[in-house]
Every structure is written in structure tokens, then in C-alpha cells.
């Protein structure tokens, strides 16, 4: 890959678009989350601000921007301010190899999924730094939980994705998309249902969302690793959390649900529809299931998802070897 000027400009434009996408996604997701939570509990959710409360999320983010950035005493200054930045910026990189359409990829590389999985690990580093630098026992406990959980759930996630990589013989997200057809029965979810299930469970664990939201369990740790962050510090964590959700949903859509391919006309709209369907699923289970205990969380991972993932990978390899 030669770094010509054209590619440079392309990446800059893509990063700007990705920032816009992250912010817009956070606004949409906050609205969707509150609305779905409301309807599940048979109340209307945000209602008063704007038609059907649509402006509520924007008002909230304005308020967040205007808030004081309060720093408690005895924090580790450098790490305290580095952590939210470190949470935000790797996520920008993660969106680069996602193929949004046949000709709409910011950075087309052969090993896109390796890039995503490698830099997704940086998110947990920022959680750890935030918890450590805050000089607060709740934050530290949340950070410790975040590390243990995210490291554990990365493994079945990779195993599930690896099964699809075996199937298509490529780590290139665009090629994986191209090998699936337009119609739902041509998607990888039918070939790899178990891998899809494992990925679905582990992406909830990976993004620290309920029922696996132990790093920020409100009832136990106030807010976990971002307890001491206010204003934009909190907003950056918040943005990166929702951006991570969007990212794992994109990956799920690309690997299992046909990516940008869909009935009638291919295009980025199909990718967004599928990704937001996965996000809706995540919101749905958040408001359905209670939070698990930490030992249950790790038991589920090590005793079920990991063996199942290995079994699935093994079976995939054998079948690929014998029949293809």
C-alpha cells in the first residue's frame, strides 16, 4: 500500500465522516435506548422535548458539553486526562476497514478483522487507566472487572469470527461480504448459527453492556471506571462505548448478515439496517435480563462459550477439508 496523497486525503475525509457517525450514532442510540426502555416498561420514554422527544438527546448532549470538568484530588493527572482520549481515538481507527458499500471503504486492507480485533483491545486499556488514575476504589474495582471481562470475552469472539474466516478463506471484510448473497438464506448466519450465537453473547460482554455491565454496575460501583469523570471526560467514554457497540454490530452484520448486500439494491443502507437491528437486540436484552454475578460471567465464558467456539471451529475445519 503506497501512501499517496489520494489515500491520505481519503483517510482524512473518512475519519471526519466517522467522527460525525460516532456522534450521530450516540444521539440516535440514546434516543432509541430510552424509547425502547420506556416502551418495554409501558411508559413513553422521552416525550416533552420536540416531537416525540426527539430533541431530548441533543439537549442532553448540549448540557454535557457545558458541564464543569471536575477533577477530584489526588488523581494521577496525566493518566486521568489521557484515559478518555485513549478510549475515543482507537475507535476512529476501527471503522476504517468496514466496507460500507461496494465502493465505499475508507481503507481497504487484506487483514481488516485483524486490525479491528487488535485495536479493540486498546479500549480496555483506557478503562484500566481511568480506573487506576481516579484514585477511587469503585473506579479501580470497575477497571479490574473490565480487564478480566474483556480479555475473557475476546477469545470466544475471535473463535466465532475465525470460523467465518475459515469458511470464506479470507480476512478481508469486503471479500467476506462478497461471498455472501443478497438474500437472507445466502448469508453466513445459516452456515454458522452457533458461531453467530457465540458472537452475539460475547459482543455484549465485550462492550460491557447489561446483562454483562459489571465494570460500570450502577448498584454496586456507582459508575465503575468512569465514576470520577464529568463533562466531556464522561462524554468521551460515553461516545466510545456507543461507537464500540456500533462497531461490533457492523462486524456482526459483515460476517454473518451479508454486510452491505441485501434484497433489491446493495448499499450502505443495508449495512446500517442490519447493524441497528443488532443494536436493537442489545438494547432489548439490556432491559430484559438482570445483571449476572461476576463468577457467572466468567463461568459462562470459560465453560461454555470457549469450548463451544473451539468445537465449532474444529467442525468447520473438518467439514471444509472434507467437502470442499
Amino acid at each position: 500500500m503506497d501512501l499517496s496523497l489520494a489515500i491520505f486525503v481519503q483517510i482524512i475525509a473518512a475519519v471526519l465522516l466517522i467522527i460525525a457517525l460516532m456522534v450521530g450514532n450516540a444521539v440516535v442510540m440514546v434516543y432509541m435506548e430510552r424509547k425502547v426502555a420506556g416502551f418495554i416498561q409501558r411508559r413513553p420514554g422521552p416525550y416533552e422535548v420536540g416531537p416525540w422527544g426527539t430533541i431530548q438527546a441533543i439537549c442532553d448532549s448540549m448540557k454535557l458539553l457545558a458541564k464543569q470538568l471536575y477533577r477530584p484530588g489526588n488523581v494521577d493527572l496525566i493518566l486521568y486526562y489521557l484515559a478518555p482520549v485513549l478510549a475515543f481515538f482507537p475507535v476512529l481507527l476501527l471503522f476504517l476497514p468496514i466496507p460500507f458499500g461496494p465502493w465505499l471503504t475508507a481503507l481497504h486492507i487484506n487483514e481488516g478483522i485483524v486490525l479491528i480485533l487488535a485495536f479493540a483491545g486498546l479500549g480496555v486499556l483506557s478503562n484500566l487507566l481511568a480506573g487506576w488514575a481516579s484514585n477511587n476504589k469503585f473506579s479501580l474495582l470497575g477497571a479490574a472487572r473490565a480487564v478480566a471481562q474483556t480479555v475473557a470475552y475476546e477469545i470466544p469472539m475471535i473463535l466465532a469470527l475465525l470460523a467465518v474466516v475459515f469458511l470464506s478463506g479470507s480476512m478481508d471484510l469486503k471479500r467476506i461480504t462478497e461471498q455472501q448473497g443478497q438474500w437472507p438464506w445466502e448469508w453466513n448466519i445459516l452456515l454458522q448459527p452457533l458461531a453467530f450465537f457465540i458472537y452475539l453473547v460475547s459482543l455484549v460482554g465485550e462492550t460491557n453492556r447489561a446483562p454483562f455491565d459489571l465494570p460500570e454496575a450502577e448498584s454496586e460501583l456507582t459508575a465503575g471506571f468512569h465514576t470520577e469523570y464529568s463533562g466531556m471526560g464522561f462524554a468521551l467514554f460515553f461516545l466510545s462505548e456507543y461507537a464500540n457497540m456500533l462497531l461490533v454490530s457492523f462486524v456482526a452484520a459483515v460476517f454473518f448478515l451479508g454486510g452491505y448486500k441485501g434484497p433489491i439494491a446493495d448499499g450502505f443502507w443495508w449495512l446500517f439496517i442490519k447493524a441497528y437491528a443488532v443494536m436493537f437486540f442489545m438494547v432489548w436484552i439490556r432491559w430484559t435480563f438482570p445483571r449476572v454475578r461476576f463468577d457467572q460471567l466468567l463461568n459462562l465464558n470459560w465453560k461454555w462459550l470457549l469450548p463451544l467456539g473451539l468445537l465449532n471451529l474444529w467442525a468447520t475445519a473438518i467439514i471444509m477439508k472434507i467437502f470442499l
Binding site: V36, G38, F39, I40, Q41, R42, R43, P44, Y47, W284, I285, W287, T288, F289
Partner: peptide, 21 residues
């Protein structure tokens, strides 16, 4: 049982809102 729980919340999601403004 997880599926049962999700079907319950899904049903509530679609049923009308009880709140009175």
C-alpha cells in the same frame, strides 16, 4: 427461559403505553 423473558419484554414493547400525560 431467556427466550421466554425476551418474549415477555417484546410483548410489552408492542403493547400500548400506560402513562397518562
Amino acid at each position: 427461559s431467556l427466550l421466554v423473558g425476551m418474549s415477555i419484554t417484546g410483548r410489552y414493547l408492542l403493547s400500548p403505553v400506560e402513562t397518562i400525560h
